[in-house]
């Protein structure tokens, strides 16, 4: 390296009467890749953990100044106290269990049905022409608007809630799967066709793998939608679940318990989404679904 330090060529370039000289030299990431990668991982961790902590800290500090009504905005410390109490008496576990049960059953039914219908509509043109406009029209009907109808048909049990969640998930999966299937490139289909693969073989080896990334994006969006419908319905009807807990705490002026419910719903939603994303990444290692930090 040392003989490179006094370069005669530097003078050559200076002879050219240039306005200036641009240099391309190694950056910090090039000089010490390992250290750079380690520093980036550390920074990511700080950001990931630090951002919610900072938010909590600000909330705590503001409520300590007394500027916020403690009845409406209890401090994080008070909410945490309520959280422990609700765990002790089993209130939180019961509500979470009831909600998760509805959520997972509805989500699974809706996702599978939406995916299958989406595949069929995407692959079978006459079906697509006939049904896609109807599916799109139904999609725009607010799900909660048909709750009364479902209550009439299915009574007051879990069935109407599960069905509504399934419907919410169904439309997201069906509509995006149609788009994904149509979007499969001819250059992906044609090699299989040239091997004379059957329709089923083409589905298994080309179409389904090709749409995995899009499918998991839809599945992740559907997570949030399913939770939204669930909480909304538990507000309106029934006496169990996290939505009911939030609404009921509010009516009883237990703002601290209400926040516990809200935070638990939010955390569950985030966990649910990252779980789906993680599964997708396992199933499709060739696609970039989550934020894999390049080295």
């Amino acid at each position: 390296m040392s003989e490179l330090m006094d370069r005669p060529a530097r003078r050559d370039l200076a002879d050219g009467g240039w306005a200036n000289v641009v240099e391309r030299t190694p950056g910090p990431a090039d000089l010490d890749p390992a250290r750079h990668a380690a520093r980036r991982r550390r920074r990511d961790t700080v950001l990931r953990v630090g951002a919610p902590l900072l938010l909590l800290l600000v909330w705590q500090l503001v409520s300590m100044t007394g500027a916020l009504s403690p009845n409406l905005w209890p401090s994080p410390a008070k909410v945490f106290g309520a959280f422990l109490e609700m765990l002790r008496i089993g209130l939180l576990q019961e509500a979470t269990l009831a909600s998760m049960n509805r959520l997972l059953v509805g989500y699974a039914v809706g996702a599978v049905a939406g995916y299958v219908v989406g595949l069929a509509l995407g692959e079978i043109r006459p079906l697509r022409i006939a049904l896609v406009p109807i599916v799109s029209a139904l999609y725009t009907v607010p799900k909660l608007a048909i709750l009364p109808l479902l209550l009439l048909i299915f009574g007051l049990g879990d069935a109407p809630k599960v069905i509504l969640i399934a419907m919410g998930v169904f439309f997201i999966l069906a509509i995006s799967t149609v788009a994904n299937v149509i979007g499969v490139a001819e250059t992906d289909r044609e090699p299989a066709a040239s091997f004379h693969s059957s329709w089923l073989q083409t589905q298994v080896h080309v179409v389904i793998p090709a749409i995995v990334p899009g499918t998991f994006t839809a599945l992740r969006i559907a997570c949030g939608n399913a939770l939204l419908i669930l909480v909304g319905m538990e507000f309106i009807q029934g006496e169990s679940g996290l939505g009911y807990l939030i609404w009921n705490s509010w009516q009883l002026y237990r703002a601290d318990r209400m926040y516990v419910g809200i935070v638990v719903v939010a955390v569950l939603g985030a966990l649910f989404q990252s779980l789906v994303g993680w599964i997708g990444q396992r199933l499709a290692p060739w696609a970039q679904l989550t934020d894999r930090t390049p080295v």
Partner: peptide
């Protein structure tokens, strides 16, 4: 991209 070692110098006529 940037090199891992060494350097590239380019004379600029008109910035």
């Amino acid at each position: 991209a940037r090199p891992s070692a060494g350097d590239v110098r380019i004379g600029v006529r008109d910035p």
